[in-house]
Design a protein around this nucleic acid. Structure first.
Length: 217
DNA sequence: TAGTACCG
DNA sequence: GGCA
């Protein structure tokens, strides 16, 4: 039996599910905007190409990334940071598509965070087998703003952990159009993504796309 | 340690 | 899944 009320979310569920005191899964929240969001991702990737970043330890991540907005998150042997230019091209990151910021603000408000104004969007592209190990989003200056994470295309299992790496992580299935918002006391929760299973989705083909919107400054 | 290897 |  589950030792958490939402330990198994593979079945049908309400449109909004609490993952913590200040963390919420908004099922299908981005569905109506999904086409515009995917088109925005294509536009961003034209100017800031997909690349697999290196961890500070020198290992390549399995997830291909790009970004948009005044700032975007980067990782290399030097460490994690936000940069105002794409290290690959030397150019400023592409502007954040209006649909991204609009969706993020609406999702944040729905989850109880008013006036969320993201200035950074990290775009993650998962091919089958790609994963993200348990980590914290802690490179933003102002940890008062929430994180808004939008799932598009292939489904994935989201790992929703605790304040320490050791705490058992909840397994949350995420599908096309789902949005997860976390902030406040849950802002530094560990989280990750299990390896994505092979498949095809009408919106994204053989990929899962994840938009992660933050206030970096 | 936003990763992988190896062990049970 | 847990450990280094």
């Amino acid at each position: 039996m589950p030792d958490h009320p939402i330990d198994d979310l593979f079945g049908d569920a309400p449109a909004a599910l609490p993952l913590g005191a200040q963390a919420m899964l908004l099922r299908g929240f981005a569905l109506a905007q999904a086409e515009a969001l995917v088109q925005g991702v294509r536009q961003v990737a034209l100017h800031a190409p997909w690349r697999r970043m290196q961890t500070p330890g020198g290992k390549a991540m399995s997830v291909a990334m790009t970004g948009c907005g005044p700032l975007s998150w980067v990782s290399d042997r030097q460490g994690y940071r936000y940069a105002d230019r794409d290290p690959l091209t030397g150019l400023p990151w592409p502007a954040m598509p209006a649909a991204f910021a609009r969706l993020a603000r609406a999702a944040a408000q729905q989850a109880g965070f008013a006036r969320f104004a993201p200035d950074a969007c990290l775009v993650n592209r998962y091919e089958p087998g790609a994963r993200m190990s348990l980590h914290q989003d802690r490179d933003e200056r102002d940890l008062g703003a929430p994180i808004v994470s939008v799932s598009l295309g292939l489904p994935a299992v989201f790992l929703w952990g605790g304040a320490t790496r050791g705490e058992r992580a909840l397994r949350v299935p995420l599908r096309h159009g789902d949005v997860v918002v976390w902030g406040g006391v849950d802002r530094l929760r560990f989280h990750g993504v299990l390896p994505v299973a092979p498949g095809e989705h009408p919106a994204t083909g053989s990929f899962r796309i994840n938009l992660t919107l933050r206030k970096a400054l």
